[in-house]
């Protein structure tokens, strides 16, 4: 179980480092976020009746008179209890409940995009790197790779312009049609899918190329491996050589890479949600930024760090199941 322990330690270290940065960075700047929060509350006429209560809540929570280290300790302890405090704009809604209500949308959209991109990209790469792929197929498959270098939000804007504005085929914003009642109905499910098509497509278009190129390289590498040539010498069907020998090995570094790039993918998603007005936690973050809702900004940032670290941990823990050379007992990375 040394492997599991090492991964857990790394997970905790990542989360701790993220939390620490999120806690200290704002305090390094001249403007104290707590002051800013209070200032904002006082200047906004809307919440005056609540202002005293909020200020009191914050003073208590941050223990403004305590030393920064005591505040830091309390911050970490609160994180442990998933207590990120209150939104200043929507007081007394807690940050955690705001994140929680937005989370399913992000998880669904992101999960779909990552899975589709990983599958399509690696399949493309497999065909690009396979010696038996007909030339014209290879040529055709390189076409969708032109979007690889671009940020997802760019492609998103282009998609909205073409498919929503010009053709009016697909809805450009939101997660579902407000005229449909949310619930377990076919109409609602269809509406959700319809709204997810464009953002998911945008993300898949820009991320699948990376998987494809990586997989293509690995296919070329494994094609030269002695065990693949031996599999051919055994007269196995070429599909078996391809999948059980070549792809099975070529995919391993890709899965490692999935873990490494999750952070980047998540970052791209925040902007995608803003462009598509998708009600996930990226949108929450954007809205918090525009309204200077610092606790929500910090809270969402922390949840992003936590979420990505968790996903990386899951990938790490699954990995030994598919690569017998890494066992739960070894501590290699």
């Amino acid at each position: 179980m040394r492997y599991v322990r090492a991964r857990l330690v790394r997970f905790l270290f990542t989360v701790w480092l993220g939390a620490t940065v999120i806690f200290f960075v704002p305090r390094l700047s001249r403007s104290d976020p707590t002051d800013a929060i209070i200032g904002q509350l006082l200047s906004s006429g809307a919440g005056v009746e609540n202002a005293d209560a909020i200020i009191e809540a914050y003073k208590q929570r941050f223990g403004l008179d305590d030393s920064i280290w005591v505040q830091y300790g309390r911050y970490l302890a609160n994180l442990f209890r998933f207590d990120n405090g209150y939104s200043v704009v929507e007081f007394p809604t807690t940050v955690d409940s705001l994140v929680l209500s937005a989370l399913p949308w992000t998880l669904g959209l992101m999960g779909a995009a990552i899975v589709i991109s990983f599958l399509v990209g690696n399949l493309t790469g497999t065909l690009l790197g396979w010696e038996r792929t007909p030339r014209w197929v290879g040529r055709v498959l390189t076409v969708p790779l032109v979007f690889t270098a671009l940020p997802a939000f760019m492609v998103g804007l282009l998609l909205i312009n073409v498919f929503s504005y010009n053709f009016g085929w697909l809805p450009p914003t939101g997660a579902y049609d407000p005229s449909v009642d949310p619930g377990w109905s076919v109409a609602f499910a269809l509406s959700v899918i319809e709204h997810a098509v464009l953002p998911v497509t945008a993300v898949v278009m820009v991320t699948m190329g990376g998987w494809a190129l990586g997989m293509r390289g690995m296919m070329i590498t494994t094609a030269g491996e002695e065990y693949v040539r031996l599999a051919e010498a055994k007269g196995l069907r070429s599909s078996r050589v391809l999948f059980n020998y070549q792809v099975r090995n070529a995919i391993l570094p890709q899965i490692t890479r999935l873990g490494i790039t999750l952070g980047l993918i998540a970052s791209g998603f925040v902007v995608i949600e803003r462009v598509f007005n998708y009600p996930g936690i990226g949108m929450r973050l954007f809205r918090a930024v525009t309204r200077n809702d610092y606790p929500v900004i910090q809270g969402v940032a922390w949840y992003l760090v936590l979420g990505v670290a968790l996903a990386v941990l899951v990938v790490d823990l699954i990995y030994p199941l598919i690569d017998p050379r890494i066992s739960y007992r070894s501590d290699s990375d």
């Binding site: 790394r10 480092l17 993220g18 704002p26 925040v270 990505v308």
Partner: peptide
Amino acid sequence: STLADTAMTIPGLAVLVVVASVVG
């Protein structure tokens, strides 16, 4: 190496937003 690996799995955008929102 540990620091670099860890830093890579922290979504940079999340932290950047915190920084930028404070600095203005």
